[in-house]
Simulated scan of single mutants.
Amino acid sequence: MHASILKYFIEVASCGSVRKASERLYVAASAVNRQIHKLEDELGVELFDRMPNGLRLNAAGERLLKHAQETLHQYQVMRTELDALKGERTGHVKVAAMDSFFEELLPSAVEDFLQVFPAVTYTITAVQPMEVAQMVMSGQVDVGMTFVSRLPGGVAAVALAKLPIGLVMPPGHPLANHASVSLKECARYPFLRSSSHPVISAALSPEFAAFWDDMEPAATCNSTPMLKRLIRAGKGISCFSKIAFIEDLKRGDLIWRPFELPALDQLQVGIVVPSQRVLPHVTQNFVGRMARRLTQLELAAAAAV
Rank of each mutant, 00 (worst) to 15 (best):
H2W: 08
S4H: 14
L6R: 08
I10H: 05
E11F: 09
A13S: 06
S14N: 14
G16P: 12
G16Y: 01
R24N: 10
L25D: 01
Y26H: 14
Y26W: 10
Y26T: 11
N33C: 08
I36Q: 01
D41I: 09
E46D: 13
L47Y: 03
R50T: 11
R50W: 07
N53W: 10
L55R: 03
N58C: 04
M78G: 09
M78S: 13
T80N: 11
E81D: 13
L82W: 14
G87W: 03
G87T: 07
R89Y: 09
T90N: 13
T90A: 12
G91W: 00
K94I: 11
A96M: 02
M98T: 12
D99V: 13
F101Q: 06
F102A: 10
E104V: 12
E104K: 15
L106I: 08
S108Q: 14
E111T: 13
D112I: 06
D112E: 15
F113C: 02
F113P: 03
F113V: 06
F117H: 14
A119H: 04
Y122P: 09
Y122K: 02
A126N: 07
V127Q: 13
Q128S: 11
V132F: 04
Q134H: 10
V136K: 01
M137P: 01
M137L: 10
S138Y: 04
G139I: 01
G139E: 11
V143T: 01
V143N: 04
F147S: 02
R150V: 07
L151F: 00
A156D: 14
A157H: 02
V158H: 01
A159Y: 04
A159K: 06
A159W: 06
K162M: 06
K162N: 13
P164K: 00
G166F: 00
V168R: 04
P171E: 15
P171H: 14
G172H: 02
H173F: 06
H173A: 04
A176F: 06
N177R: 15
N177P: 15
H178A: 11
H178C: 09
A179P: 15
A179H: 15
S180L: 03
V181W: 13
S182F: 00
L183S: 00
R188A: 09
P190S: 00
P190R: 00
F191E: 02
R193S: 08
R193I: 00
S196E: 06
S196P: 11
H197R: 09
H197D: 10
A202Q: 12
A202L: 08
A203W: 07
S205V: 01
S205L: 01
F208I: 11
W212V: 07
E216T: 14
P217F: 03
P217Q: 06
A218S: 10
T220N: 10
N222D: 11
T224R: 11
T224Y: 08
P225Q: 04
K228Y: 04
L230H: 07
R232D: 07
I237N: 03
C239M: 15
S241E: 01
A244F: 00
G252A: 02
D253M: 08
W256P: 09
F259G: 03
P262K: 04
D265F: 02
Q268F: 00
G270D: 03
S275H: 05
S275V: 05
R277G: 05
P280V: 05
H281R: 13
T283A: 07
Q284I: 02
N285Q: 12
G288F: 07
R293K: 14
V305Y: 10
V305N: 15
